[in-house]
Design a protein around this nucleic acid. Sequence first.
DNA 1: GGATTTTGGTTGTATATACAAGTTTTTCGG
DNA 2: CCGAAAAACTTGTATATACAACCAAAATCC
Lengths: 235, 235
Amino acid sequence: MAKFAEIKEFMLRQIESGAWPEHSRVPSENELAEQFSVSRMTARRALQELTEQSILYRTQGVGSFVAALKSQSSLLEIRNIADEVQSGGHAYRAKLLQLTELPCPGIVATALGLKRNEPVFFSLIVHFSDSLPLQLEARYVNPKQVPLYTQQDFQEITPHLYLSEIAPLTEAEHIVEAIWPDEFTCQHLALKKPEPCLRLTRRTFSRDGAVSLAYLTSPGSRYRLGGHLNFALPR
Amino acid sequence: MAKFAEIKEFMLRQIESGAWPEHSRVPSENELAEQFSVSRMTARRALQELTEQSILYRTQGVGSFVAALKSQSSLLEIRNIADEVQSGGHAYRAKLLQLTELPCPGIVATALGLKRNEPVFFSLIVHFSDSLPLQLEARYVNPKQVPLYTQQDFQEITPHLYLSEIAPLTEAEHIVEAIWPDEFTCQHLALKKPEPCLRLTRRTFSRDGAVSLAYLTSPGSRYRLGGHLNFALPR
DNA sequence: GGATTTTGGTTGTATATACAAGTTTTTCGG
DNA sequence: CCGAAAAACTTGTATATACAACCAAAATCC
């Protein structure tokens, strides 16, 4: 591995392990150069590339610092429904309806790269803001990547948060639809009359392949999907 | 402006003007260095940064080339509604309801960085698949960036396609909602009974700032938003 | 004590050089 | 003519150096 890449790896480990917290100062170009016995230009390259990835930020004349982890990624608001609710000043609560292993349906098998009827984990959760149900989450999880999924307490931690700890996201695929909710969904979202709902179908990938397939259904009147779906276009 | 930035600007102009087409070879580090009377390392930096932005691709021992304007970006399917309809074997048609200049409403002014009541362009279009209305598009356009907007024939070219020629996209911001369509919308989408609709609010940016603000409304039963919204996560 | 200047540290830009690694073209030997 | 070797050219990595721009704290001056 090239020297500048080794320095990057080192710094990434420090940051991901928490040894270098957000907004803390990282070694200067000269310090890194000395520690790793390289020229300043080589150390600089490591800092430079981490800055371009928004992992660091730098200010001329001041220094280099660890950037805030929660970037305004395109999916943050969707992901962290718990945080979103709480940041709005409401109490977040989750109700676990089901958490089992079951034979994999055909569509799910295709999506997750499993065989049909092979065991797959399944969870069904309603997310609440105060006492108002916001979202019904049905999720299939690849047991090969997340073998302990069914032993978690999803009243305490959201599946998405748990999954992103176990198998960090590398990619996500989405389909957004406006649907008419069925009886079952209406019931769990406490909809007396059916109303237009957003359904987000999300497939997440980590470095080793597909991790989970989730159907997230929210009443259009209660949940604005994504707050801001903000993402840069390639070119 | 720094020298490496000047070289980048030069190369971007060549690419955006079409003088350097996709996959064509661009000058080598040494050639650029000589043309601009800089060192190879400086020329290299320009090439490097354009490569990191996926504007070029390089192969050791071979050379540097213009990357494909990869448009299977997260928004292609949304953007190119005409292509999407046609690729499904249907006839695409657009009906222009309005194309005028009007005083800028407050919200639009904020979104586009204009002053209130300053002139802004507005277009209202229905997109059809065969004879079935698929989407109602209401769009505000920044006259400073696209002065000839009102002189286009949007039966022939979609606004999005025209805009991406005039002011290439660098970024887009989205809000997705499930809404209950109003009378006016129902009428133009030929909905006899109201049904859940997807509304995509999209703000697009080019290098010089906000270009347009569009409200795209589609019946949930007729249009699957995004086909696949596929995008990579940062980090 | 307060304002100003100096100083030292930091990042930013630019150059010249050297060698490594990979590909393509040319040359040369058979 | 063919194949192998050599040359030429490309990008990739690394170093040493110089100076500019910027900032913060220390030193100095009044």
